[in-house]
Write a protein that binds this DNA or RNA. Structure first.
Lengths: 230, 230
DNA sequence: CCCTGAGTTTAGCCTATCCTAACGAAGTAT
DNA sequence: ATACTTCGTTAGGATAGGCTAAACTCAGGG
């Protein structure tokens, strides 16, 4: 049986693999991300390796096997469908959905998953712009171009905002910055200085200053001539 | 901390107290209802007693304390709100909601509870006609008159149908029998024989034969001249 | 070539919950 | 009154997960 704890490990390994550009995930990084001690992580990795859900090269790191990745993607799918459902159907604020979804994601049955999916009209991204894996376990591409890489004058649509910090999400929402919104970078100040951005293209639209930490949470996608999915 | 397991024990003790007309609940009955061994129940009762959530008179039985009853009612409220929400908002069949709600009931936050409650328009009964405890921990009266106590010719509204057996619920729904439906008992056959019932009062309405086991799951309330809550 | 330090693993233990087997108490029947 | 039967409790142990302390590995500096 795959327990809730195992699902959490697999999900987190998946996330760290994504962030880490392919290298195996270290025990320490995993333990920290899960807020457990390193020995606890080692112990669980052994169990997961026995179930062929991860490949564990002692002292070198872990990688998900295809089976493990499938489980991870199911959990991520449940998480993101829940986030979407809580926001769209129950009126949650976008900064509040992550925590709630984390608690519920391990208990979503196939039936509930299917009904939420249908009620939402088969969404492809969650409220933060993160792509929702398909039922078959395919993760669509995510918006991955950091806002700070846009040159002055360049513009695009906000594709995704990291869901890690509710306070940042509230702040950004207060500025009108969330996925789907058009953004123009007016100026990128040197020495890791702030970005001057304009919401939309219109010269009269509101402008804001974003520090680098905040900007790092925002990922852009190309402006879409034929306004597509929501 | 009150664990999920503890909540399950408290909920079950509450249910058995209700069914058992006030006598303390026996360890064996509790263990059986929870599908655990008697020693497991004894052990948990000790812990619950230490937390002052139950009063455990060894070898005599358990009773909920007011604090324990409060916890039990919260769990029941979550369960019944979930059942209602799954049916009304997500289109679940009424025989499928119980199992799903059992899994989710321990993870419902105050926020989620409030939002489901509001989305449903502050319902007072769940899809089986069971009353939903208030946020303050008050359990409204349930329809408690067994169908079989109606004399021939007497009629009333179905107030509640026991949610224990999905197969029975499906069968009854197939006959058009669920809470709120008017029912007339045409005849009660002797020696625990079946009941002849008519759906509604109209002489042309469909009639059915219900065995005693099935009839025992149905509880009636008085016909309400001014059609009230739904 | 050894030493040191970062990071990982092993060893040993804790808590929660469950189990089976054996014991004890309380009521029933002779 | 004594023995049987039923039910609950104690005793002892398993499993899942987590923790701290100590040992190990390996890469890089001396």
């Amino acid at each position: 049986m795959i327990s809730k704890a195992m699902e959490d490990y697999l999900k987190t390994i998946y996330k760290l693999e994504r962030e880490g550009r392919g290298e195996p995930v270290g025990t320490g990084a995993l333990a920290e991300a899960l807020a457990v001690s390193a020995p606890s992580a080692t112990g669980m990795l052994k169990k997961l390796a026995e179930l062929h859900l991860v490949e564990h090269n002692p002292r070198r790191g872990v990688t998900l096997t295809p089976a493990g990745e499938k489980v991870a993607l199911e959990v991520v799918r449940h998480h993101r469908l829940l986030e979407s459902y809580l926001k769209e159907a129950l009126g949650y604020d976008w900064d509040a959905v992550h925590e709630e979804a984390d608690r519920l994601e391990h208990l979503v049955s196939d039936e509930l998953e299917a009904r939420m999916d249908a009620a939402l009209g088969y969404p492809t991204v969650d409220p933060h712009g993160d792509p929702i894996p398909t039922r078959e376990g395919v993760m669509p591409a995510a918006a991955s171009r950091p806002l700070a890489t846009l040159a002055g004058g360049e513009s695009g649509l906000i594709g995704r905002v990291s869901d890690a910090d509710p306070a940042k999400l509230r702040y950004l929402a207060g500025l009108g910055l969330f996925p789907g919104v058009a953004l123009t970078v007016l100026e990128t100040l040197p020495f890791n200085g702030p970005l001057r951005v304009r919401v939309g293209h219109d010269p009269g639209a509101p402008e804001h200053l974003l520090g680098r930490e905040l900007a790092a949470d925002i990922f852009m996608r190309a402006e879409d001539p034929a306004g597509a999915s929501g």
